[in-house]
Amino acid sequence: MEILLQQLFNSLTIGSVYSLVALGLTLVYGILHIPNFAHGALYMMGGYITLTMMTAFGFNYWVAMFVSILVVGLIGVLLERFVFRLLREAPPLHDKIAAIGILLFLEAFAQFVWGADFQTMTSPYGQVVTIMGLTFTMQRLLIIVSAIVVMILLYLFLKKTFTGASIIAMSQSREGASLVGININKVAMLTFMISGGLAAIAASLASPINLVFPGMGHLVILKAFVIIILGGMGSIPGAIVGGYILGFSESLGATYISNDYKDIIAFVLLVIILTVKPTGLFAKGER
């Protein structure tokens, strides 16, 4: 029973990180219908920038994370402006390949600047806490709390502000949004910025319990894809719920099935889902 509780707690941590990454991915998909394969690379950049800010510039963890959000958000904006906007009228195949090109570049760039080694990020919240027989580090608790705070802020932004509403409007209908005077280009850039920022937050939160290396985004992005297919491409609540579901199934799978194959669970899950329902769960409309 204790193992189960401990595992449930761990799955909440992993699930929070997955949800944040999947949120960024689903936002971009909802608006531009681009499966952004480069999103994992943005996550990786977020981890490295926070780490560099802390080690090279001696910034506080939170300040470093803030810088990272800004920088990765900016990278996102640049991608939208100089790559995806040019491909808006192109066949869908082109977006995917362009995204793969960006992914390859960012990874090589990280390896060039920071080297291929695995690096650790020391968080100021390494203390071990024991509550009701559960042992965990403050960092894990921090991940869960911060993720929830970020999700609530995002929700409020999307629902209560005018800018947020324009993002929602555009995800419902690009033509419609444009007809009522929403500047599509601005909204697309903003969405990419939020998406990059979310990736940076997720990476900065997760890095102290994982490691920082050029390939750190690979598995995360693949899993994020599984999540948004699970939760419905473009659906925001779907991304959050899907993230936690995947977190739970992985933790339980690692404990009760096999630790070696825990990374495969997500993909098997996806293959099963798409086998039964080729358009993904909760798909809207005919596609």
Partner: peptide, 28 residues
């Protein structure tokens, strides 16, 4: 037979995951 029931983005993501499963199975 299964993969081709999906389209466009789903097909790309599906096959990406299939490729990863093949790699993991060979590796493990």
């Amino acid at each position: 037979v299964i993969a081709l029931r999906t389209k466009e983005h789903f097909f790309a993501i599906y096959t990406l995951c299939v490729g990863y499963i093949i790699y993991l199975v060979i590796d493990k």
